[in-house]
């Protein structure tokens, strides 16, 4: 092993290209699964708030499964298991369209939806029944009370856990490496195999992950501050 030589990696155009591609895929997977998760979470929440016991059970089961089974096992079940049960035409199509990344998005998105919907639900629950009654008394309909009174407050309450779980989601995108998605961790391991500069490339990978995670945390803190009525009243 030679001495510490960060420049050897950062000036090698091949390695830089691999790192950039890794970062790009990490963001494709993280943002793709975030959007999928948020859409599903809102859908799950709507089912949970609508009358009928069956929907409630379904959502409770969904959330329970996705929170109690390790994310890695969920990804493996999707990629090694469900992938093989799909009809041939779909398998071919997926294999030609970066199936690893697609299943990473599906697996992480479905899993995260359970966390997001629980965050939103506990945010909405903490608003309290008085708000709904007051809004109805003032002449709002159910939906309009939801839209103008409950949801703004509920989402504000849910922001801190939502941001924490968004950071987790970003970190969990690294699990894609297990099913072969070519994201940042994958790029790091590949460069390690080519350059044998394990320490340097792990350092680069760690700093990159840390940078983006802290960026998400800081962005989240800013959004939380902006959403605070005290801050708005001051502005």
């Amino acid at each position: 092993m030679t001495g510490f030589d960060l420049a050897a990696i950062l000036t090698n155009p091949d390695y830089v290209a691999m790192l950039l591609h890794g970062i790009e895929m990490t963001f494709v997977i993280a943002i793709g699964s975030w959007l999928l998760a948020m859409t599903l979470a809102i859908l799950l929440l709507a089912i949970r708030f609508s009358p009928g016991r069956f929907g409630n059970w379904f959502v409770a089961g969904y959330v329970s499964y996705h929170r109690n089974v390790p994310t890695l096992v969920q990804l493996m079940l999707w990629y090694f298991g469900i992938f093989t049960l799909m009809p041939d035409w779909l398998t071919y199509w997926l294999a030609g369209h970066n199936a690893e990344a697609i299943f990473a998005v599906i697996g992480l998105g479905l899993c995260q939806a359970a966390y997001f919907s629980e965050d939103l639900r506990s945010g909405l629950r903490s608003v309290g029944p008085g708000q709904m009654e007051a809004a109805r008394a003032l002449g709002h309909g159910y939906l309009s009370a939801m839209r103008f009174v409950l949801i703004p407050q509920g989402v504000r309450n849910a922001l801190p856990p939502l941001i924490n779980h968004s950071v987790s989601l970003f970190k969990n995108s690294s699990l894609g490496v297990v099913i072969g998605a070519s994201e940042l961790t994958h790029a790091v391991k590949e460069i390690e195999n080519l350059s044998f500069q394990t320490f340097e490339i792990y350092l680069v990978g760690t700093v990159l992950y840390l940078f983006f995670s802290l960026l998400i945390m800081a962005g989240g803190a800013y959004v939380t501050m902006r959403a605070d009525p005290a801050w708005r009243a001051r502005a």
Partner: peptide
């Protein structure tokens, strides 16, 4: 605490492995 919160566990495992 911030490093463990901001870096994927997978990356930390690779570090220990090395």
């Amino acid at each position: 605490v911030y490093v463990t919160r901001g870096v994927p566990l997978l990356m930390l495992i690779l570090w220990s492995y090395f």
